[in-house]
Amino acid sequence: MIEFINVEKKYANGTVALQNINLKIEQGEFVAVIGLSGAGKSTLIRCINRMHDITGGQLNVDNVDVGKLRGKQIRRFRRRIGMIFQSFNLVTRTTVLKNVLVSFVPDLPFWRKLTGVYNRDHKIKALEALDKVGILDKAYIRVDQLSGGQQQRVALARTLAQNPDIILADEPIASLDPVTAKMVMDDFKRINQEMNISVIMNIHHVEVALEYADRIIGIHKGTVVFDGESAKVTKEILDTIYGGQVEEATASLEESPAHV
């Protein structure tokens, strides 16, 4: 379980990114965090794995006070949390398989880190992860020969290989076309349901968030202004989240039979 208790994030320049955040996210939930650019969505999810340190309150993951972790404790903690970025963060001049194998580097003895030699068990786990996202046949192809959607699937496979309890996704489909985005979102949903992995996703595409997520968290100017089931999101709620700047999202909501 992830629990935010009166969490605040204030940057050194005085900017308040998050204030008075109180949330509980249970294991296995699929949560979409929505809001305007700069509202605090990325900051919220990056606090969960200590990419950002909170400056007030308390953040617990399975009853572990994340703010109190130090050094090796942080690295060990992060092994349980996969992170997917918009930019994929792949080494494009090497193979798909080698990119997935990178997930095992933190656990390797020093000599293996230096030589880049992985054992048979690591390779099997990496290939199984590629199979789960449907690109096993691309294992020995260089990443720069793949499409954007295939590269995002490599990033997802790399995360799955570390066997996480939680996946944080920061705008994972922002650079993808609609058809490819749907394929990637289908992967996230299947993994969430079949493996009971919590997915917390920061996403700009409101209609996609409503279709795939079970729960919506709306952030406006660093505060949570909505937290509830996707099916309960209305045009009025979207106006609150987006400060009235949600014409396109409102139109898509109006056209969707599931939300009429």
Rank of each mutant, 00 (worst) to 15 (best):
F88A: 02
V31S: 00
A39Q: 06
E255S: 12
Q19S: 14
R158Y: 02
Q58Y: 01
V102C: 11
G149F: 05
A39D: 06
Q86K: 10
F110S: 14
V31W: 00
T94W: 14
M201F: 07
L160F: 05
Q58W: 01
Q152D: 13
V105L: 07
S87C: 00
T223N: 14
Q145N: 13
V66M: 02
N202R: 09
E3M: 05
G35A: 11
S175K: 05
N119G: 01
I241M: 10
N202T: 08
R76Q: 13
A126Y: 03
E255V: 04
E171G: 06
Q145A: 13
Q193I: 12
F104S: 03
E194V: 00
T15L: 02
T15Q: 12
M201W: 11
G148Q: 07
I166M: 04
K10L: 05
V206S: 04
T92V: 14
L59P: 04
K189S: 13
V133T: 02
L127H: 12
T240Q: 15
V143T: 13
K24V: 01
K10T: 11
L108P: 12
Q58P: 04
L130G: 09
R190T: 09
L59F: 02
V105P: 00
R215H: 14
R93Q: 11
T240P: 00
I5S: 07
T43S: 14
G57T: 08
I54W: 05
D227L: 00
F30Q: 04
T234Y: 02
G67T: 00
T92Q: 15
A129W: 03
R80E: 08
T115A: 01
R75S: 08
E171N: 02
S103I: 00
E3L: 00
V100S: 04
N99Q: 10
E229S: 14
I200R: 00
L130K: 12
N49T: 06
R70N: 14
E236W: 02
H122R: 07
L160N: 07
N63W: 03
E29R: 15
D186I: 00
P106Y: 14
E26D: 11
A161C: 04
T250Q: 15
E236I: 06
A129I: 10
V7P: 09
K125W: 01
V96E: 13
